[in-house]
Design a protein around this nucleic acid. Structure first.
Lengths: 218, 218
DNA sequence: ATAAAAATTTAGATTAGCCTAAAAATTAAC
DNA sequence: GTTAATTTTTAGGCTAATCTAAATTTTTAT
């Protein structure tokens, strides 16, 4: 079956949104793809006709088994290229995504298998996200609480185990978000508070807070 | 200026056809691009409007300075990827073209400059064709007559210095064409005739013929 | 130099992906 | 449980790139 780059982008976006909620809405997808809801509806009809998703008008959509398989192939290509760009071409980790967005649409099977082998079958991309293997399987990255991570640990904030308003505000005011990359610089022997480096700036978090921040290693 | 992948394909095709004759015709280009003359005419108007080529209706077209510069960037990207595929991913030399056709349309400047550096600024691609540098300059490959090439020399037939019907028929019957890759296996001390390997088969050419076949090294 | 052949352009459709505006369905609010 | 607000879909258009068929121009052959 032929799947256009545009269709691929839709499938990938739905795949990612489904991590948040099993069924995806028209507006949510439109916003993710920087397009209009009407365009999404058009495309949903096309993808349903191709059996790539389940779609009930007015009630959202979700990937079919076939659609999910396709999305995983796209994610695989994207993350392999990200790994290549960072590891071989020495791009910075935050520059790789944009370029990989273009490279991911080249579907040639042999290319991807050879690239994978050349890179040494990496399990995680430069953002710490798992790279699906050729059959779509992937490792879940190990999550480490910032409070117990070793000094010099570098990771990405992946999960916050306390969703209280106060904690979230505390994080927001410090621009700490899911996906933020940080490095553990030191841990106080006195109170267990940690100093972390986030981009160019450094900040201190209490042990209590650090305990709720789960990182994936990168 | 924004140039679509389709427009890029047109520019590249014109660039290559111009090596044969300075001005390119509608049918010739249509045939090269596996499309119809009417489609070519449409595109020529568009590319002329973008100042990428000179176009006189009914009298063919040629690249403008700007168009030639753009075409050279595309050729550069194509050949760098070919080199990457053969050298790093161990594709066979005859498999690289197809994949590079897709990769070449990713225009990200930083990507190409970093790829070039990673590959060690190669001068020639796996077919022996010169790779333009970032300013569009390239080395002309050295041409060696098959009659004087060293044993084990591998190259691609690039130029035939005698266009007589008899010679051309002789080549045709042996499927020896411009672009054919061959390897010199041995040279007779008796009469200077050479044994060459072409793909899986071997054949013998007289010294007289070998003298008219110019190869570029690969 | 003219008629026939070949090449090229124009005219008018088609398809994919997108848009705006209007209509319809769902959800939320009282 | 109606009404209002929100979400989603439909209807109708737009653009890029393509096509076929018809018209036009150029080239070739006498």
């Amino acid at each position: 079956m032929v799947i256009s780059p545009t269709e691929e982008n839709y499938l990938k976006a739905i795949y990612h949104l489904q991590a948040l909620s099993e069924v995806v809405s028209t507006t949510h997808l439109a916003q993710k793809l920087q397009t209009k809801p009407a365009s999404v509806t058009d495309m949903m009809k096309k993808l349903q006709a191709k059996n790539l998703l389940h779609y009930t008008p007015y009630h959202g959509f979700s990937l079919s088994a076939e659609g999910r398989k396709t999305a995983l192939h796209i994610v695989r290509r994207h993350r392999l290229w990200e790994y290549f760009l960072a590891e071989k071409l020495s791009f910075e980790w935050n520059e790789v995504h944009e370029v990989a967005e273009e490279l991911e649409h080249i579907g040639n099977k042999k290319l991807i298998e050879k690239l994978d082998a050349y890179l040494g079958f990496p399990q995680f991309d430069p953002h710490g996200d798992p790279i699906p293997d050729s059959r779509g399987r992937m490792q879940q990255p190990e999550l480490v609480p910032l409070s117990t991570a070793p000094i010099a640990f570098t990771g990405v904030l992946q999960l916050v185990t306390d969703q209280s308003k106060d904690l979230l505000e505390h994080l927001a005011s410090r621009k700490l978000r899911i996906g933020t990359r940080l490095e553990l610089r030191s841990r106080s022997a006195f109170d267990g508070s940690v100093d972390i480096k986030m981009g160019s700036k450094t900040l201190t978090l209490t042990r209590q807070l650090a305990n709720h921040l789960l990182l994936k290693q990168i």
